[in-house]
Design a protein around this nucleic acid. Structure first.
Length: 443
RNA sequence: GGUGGGGUACUCAAGUGGCCAACGAGAGCAGACUGUAAAUCUGCCGGCGCAAGCCUUCGAAGGUUCGAAUCCUUCCCCCACCA
């Protein structure tokens, strides 16, 4: 669903120009350019519902990165006070308000990730603030008088975010969300001199609620700038891999998996991604796009993308490891040639399972002694490549399973242990063309 | 509170006593082709099992029946209009 982008207003601010050529500018209020002509405070809100950000958060993050590079002061707002505004239609229960401790822990995690992108020191330092600091203090009557008084129900009902929900129903809580977000904006303005809010294009209405409130209640000029919603060329959800989100936290998504996510970007998307997620210049990106057209099989642009983003998020050492693992899985390296160091890296980066022989060995014995054979099904489930024996069976039948990079025939459910294990009891298990796991066999 | 309409697997959505583990679509997984891409074609897509088959599932709990997602009762939740 590619919504037609409203033509962004002409700008004089370098920051907006940067966003524009990178394809990050969807729309901006008329006064945005004037406000951004001077250094100012710019904020983006994140939900601290998890202790880690994911790649879907990268666009707003990069929006702040560019802001800081342009001399503005980035402010990250975590919605500790608004965290519960979810879908009350869920069958089991309403989403509970996160506890203070959980939010604080999540904020710590998010902050450490943002430090890879933003400078929290220097002349125009980034800040991270929690709206719980003021929302928790808020008195309802005061809120209605000071904030609610400035909002017209008629206007609120006309906002897309509300109008689209009127059919399916919307609770008062969710309806009120834009007031809280507007109030956040006024607090950030008061506390940190923020005059511009960034957000996804779906946030336009909510952001305007804030600029309106600032103008009416405080006679302050403020602006909204939104990013386009990101879709992939093939219509898949951006930022999803193997059913799950791609996280910035190495514990949740290993640097290798993170790297792989970018390497697998569609040809049709890679130029867009380079503009959005790297600091490469326009001419560098143009050059990379030419390589896609000339020699797509080399995936040079995808590799450059993966290298840039992985380095920023995980650092140079992690990138080197990710590339090493990639080289093994997708290059011509013979599994038997692996040395201990390489196995160590594999164990760390690839999905790894340390299992006991009893976990994957064949249960049946012949004449009282174990047969010493390995059960492929159980290796697949133990390593997490298959969710169940049934799934493992189907994979094997479809010819999707490989061991030490050798594709197994459907009949090869049981393997000889001695000839299968590499040094140190390792086995490289593969599912499909690009999904691998390393097993280390205990006794 | 009243009246009417609903709650089906990851999502949307058929099904209204046996042919239902439940049509179809999307998503997902795999195979072929390629380039770790897209598109296309093919297979899979609740769990266990080599298999025959067994087990669990259609908001929840009971009940009717040889047999229930389908009928009855109670309860919970959602929507529309009315109050």
């Amino acid at each position: 669903m590619t919504a037609p982008a409203p033509t962004p207003p002409p700008t004089t601010a370098p920051y907006l120009e940067e966003l524009r050529w990178r394809g990050m500018l969807y729309q901006a209020t008329e006064g945005a350019a004037a406000l951004l002509a001077q250094p100012t405070g710019i904020y983006v809100g994140f939900d601290p519902t998890a202790p880690s950000l994911h790649v879907g958060n990268l666009i707003p993050i990069m929006g702040l990165v560019h802001a800081q590079r342009a001399g503005h002061r980035p402010v990250v707002l975590v919605g500790g006070g608004t965290g519960m505004i979810g879908d009350p239609g869920g069958r089991s229960s309403e989403r509970p308000l996160l506890s203070v401790a959980e939010i604080d822990a999540n904020v710590v995690g998010i902050r450490s990730q943002l430090e890879r992108f933003l400078d929290f020191g220097g002349a125009n330092p980034a800040r991270i603030v929690n709206n719980a600091d003021w929302l928790r203090e808020l008195k309802l009557v005061d809120f209605l008088r000071d904030v609610g008084k400035h909002f017209s129900i008629n206007v609120m009902l006309a906002k897309d975010s509300v109008a689209s929900r009127l059919d399916g129903g919307i609770t008062y809580t969710e309806f009120s969300y834009m007031l809280l977000q507007g109030y956040d904006f006024t607090e950030l303005n008061r506390r940190h001199g923020v005059t511009v809010q960034l957000g996804g294009s779906d946030q336009w209405g909510n952001i305007l609620a804030g600029t309106e409130l600032l103008r009416r209640a405080h006679d302050v000029d403020a602006a909204a700038v939104t990013f386009p919603l990101l879709t992939t060329a093939s219509g898949k959800k951006f930022g999803k891999s193997e059913g799950g989100a791609v996280w910035l936290d190495a514990e949740r998504t290993s640097p290798y998996q993170f790297y792989q996510y970018w390497v697998n970007a569609d040809d049709a998307d890679v130029g867009k991604y380079l503009r959005l997620f790297t600091l490469m210049t326009a001419s560098e990106i143009s050059a990379a796009e030419i390589t896609v057209a000339d020699d797509p099989a080399a995936r040079a642009a995808q590799r450059a993308l993966a290298r840039e983003v992985t380095t920023r998020v995980h650092g140079a050492a992690a990138l080197a490891a990710a590339e090493q693992v990639t080289g093994f899985f997708f290059g011509g390296v013979e599994p038997s040639a692996l040395n201990d160091d390489a196995l160590e890296v594999l164990a760390k980066e690839a999905p790894f399972a340390a299992v006991s022989l009893a976990d994957v060995g064949e249960v049946a014995t012949e004449g009282g002694t174990p047969t010493g054979r390995l059960d492929v099904y159980r290796m697949l489930t133990a390593s997490g490549l298959a969710a169940s024996n049934g799934a493992a069976k189907k994979l094997l039948e479809q010819g999707a399973v490989s061991v030490n990079k050798r594709k197994l025939a459907a009949s090869e459910r049981y393997l000889d242990r001695a000839s299968t294990t590499l040094r140190g009891g390792h086995i490289v298990l593969g599912k499909g063309k690009r999904d691998f796991a390393l097993i280390r066999l205990g006794s």
